[in-house]
Simulated assay, not measured.
Amino acid sequence: MTPRADPLTVEVVGLIGTVVARYYEEYEQAATEHSLTGAQARVLSLLSVEPLPMRKIAQRLKCEPSNITGIVDRLESRGLVERRPDPADRRVKLAAPTEEGASLAQALRTSLDFAREPLGRLTAAERTLLKELLQKMLGVAPE
């Protein structure tokens, strides 16, 4: 039997949910301003970190590889993504952002104002603490 969550945990989970919902809402809006769907923007953002094969993109975004193929096809037709052979296994194709795609991914990241404004109300020490707490929650090693 799972123990009941205490009221503070319930409230924190609700606040995290609100932040996530606001993030996705603004992310979709930013994507639309660049004539992208939210899914296209997420793929482009993911690829701006590193080139990936379709199956890894699908795993990270928790969707079917066939969906990713269509998204990458549309990004490729716009000149934002290219397919290239994987140097480790030439049978595998990697999706990678073009220079224009990388610039657009950066523009998407910098256009998300909703988080920047509330975070700006926190001191540098508070933002650092928040970052460390989120990393701890996610099991991510601190940078």
Rank of each mutant, 00 (worst) to 15 (best):
V92T: 15
T128L: 13
E82V: 15
A141L: 10
L108W: 03
T110K: 10
P65G: 07
P7T: 01
L52G: 03
V49F: 07
Q40T: 02
I16M: 14
A41N: 08
Q40G: 07
Y27P: 00
Y24N: 06
P65K: 09
P85L: 07
A115T: 05
V20L: 13
V20T: 12
A30V: 15
Q29F: 04
R121H: 14
I57R: 08
R60F: 06
E11Q: 14
D6M: 06
A31T: 07
F114S: 12
E99W: 02
N67L: 12
I16W: 12
Q135R: 07
A31Y: 05
F114Q: 06
L47G: 07
V49W: 07
V12W: 09
K62V: 09
T128I: 00
L94Q: 09
I71C: 03
E33C: 01
L36M: 08
P87L: 12
T128M: 06
P87K: 10
Q29P: 00
R109Y: 02
S77P: 00
P65W: 09
A141F: 01
V10T: 14
L46E: 11
A88F: 04
A95F: 07
A107T: 14
Q59W: 02
L130F: 09
V20K: 07
E64D: 15
L104G: 04
S77V: 06
V72A: 10
Q106I: 01
L75R: 10
L129T: 10
S66T: 14
A125N: 05
A41H: 05
L122D: 06
S45N: 15
L129P: 00
V92P: 03
T69I: 10
S77Y: 00
A58W: 08
R91H: 12
L138R: 10
D113P: 00
E50C: 00
S35L: 08
T9D: 10
G120R: 10
R60C: 00
G38E: 13
P65A: 09
A41K: 05
L75H: 09
V10K: 12
E33M: 05
V12R: 13
I57K: 04
G38Y: 02
R84K: 15
L36V: 05
